[in-house]
């Protein structure tokens, strides 16, 4: 499903990623971890083609993301849902408008947009807040709206960059429960986090980055030879 082969990304002299190679299978749930500046965000940005690698190949469903023409990038992104730490919701638009942007781009009529948005918001427990504006919601609710927006087109891959970084532990737990549920329905999930408690609690594959290099890749966090806190660096 996702295949990174000797991928490097340099910003001038700085090596954000250095010959990173790994593969994630369809339906897998994986964490990407490492200290700040390890290259987690860069790796995710390469995956949804917000950046282009300096060297190497990135394949998503057999498609070479790096060589994708610019006009085809939106179509790649529609196969992925992306969730950010800062939610990235449009404050002047309602929850419904935020969530239904992609269906609108796809040309669905308003009725179908509404039905789809309702169903997706129900999955994240926010169907009753369709008319609210993001700033009227709590942090956890905003993140759930952001997840609903990522899920509305039933993406094959869900990518999240520190999705619980701005949330308290209880809300973070709820959000991870949601990711697990999404994964159980068959969506491949890749989450960047440096929250070691989450990694220890969930028995999932962990890809560890340090200074742009992939330093560990384990099928389950519990199998790591070194203590997690040492791998993550915090």
């Amino acid at each position: 499903m996702i295949h990174f082969y000797r991928v490097s990304k340099h910003y001038g002299e700085q090596r954000a990623l250095d010959e990173v190679t790994f593969q994630i299978e369809r339906g897998e749930f994986a964490f990407l971890t490492g200290p700040s500046g390890a290259g987690k965000t860069t790796l995710l940005r390469l995956l949804f083609r917000q950046e282009v690698p300096t060297a190497g190949q990135i394949l998503v469903n057999g498609r070479n993301v790096a060589s994708l023409p610019r006009r085809k990038v939106p179509f790649l992104r529609r196969t992925m849902g992306v969730v950010f730490q800062d939610f990235r919701l449009i404050p002047r638009k309602t929850v419904f408008e935020n969530v239904s942007y992609l269906p609108r781009v796809l040309g669905l009529d308003r009725q179908r947009q509404k039905r789809l948005a309702y169903e997706t918001l129900r999955r994240v427990g926010l169907a009753h807040r369709m008319k609210a504006f993001p700033l009227e919601l709590s942090g956890g609710e905003q993140q759930r709206v952001s997840i609903a927006r990522a899920l509305i087109n039933q993406p094959e891959i869900l990518i999240a960059d520190e999705p619980t970084g701005n949330l308290d532990p209880e809300m973070a737990r709820e959000i991870f429960e949601l990711f697990l549920e999404i994964n159980r329905r068959g969506t491949t999930v890749l989450i960047a986090t440096h929250d070691t408690r989450v990694l220890e609690r969930l028995d999932k594959r962990v890809l560890a980055l340090r200074a742009g290099k992939l330093t560990d890749d384990s099928a389950a966090a519990g199998d790591l030879a070194a203590p997690l806190s040492e791998v993550v660096g915090g």
Binding site: F75, R77, R78, L102
Partner: peptide, 8 residues
């Protein structure tokens, strides 16, 4: 944001 979610 529009670009990220797949807007042409």
């Amino acid at each position: 944001i529009m670009r990220l979610v797949g807007g042409t």
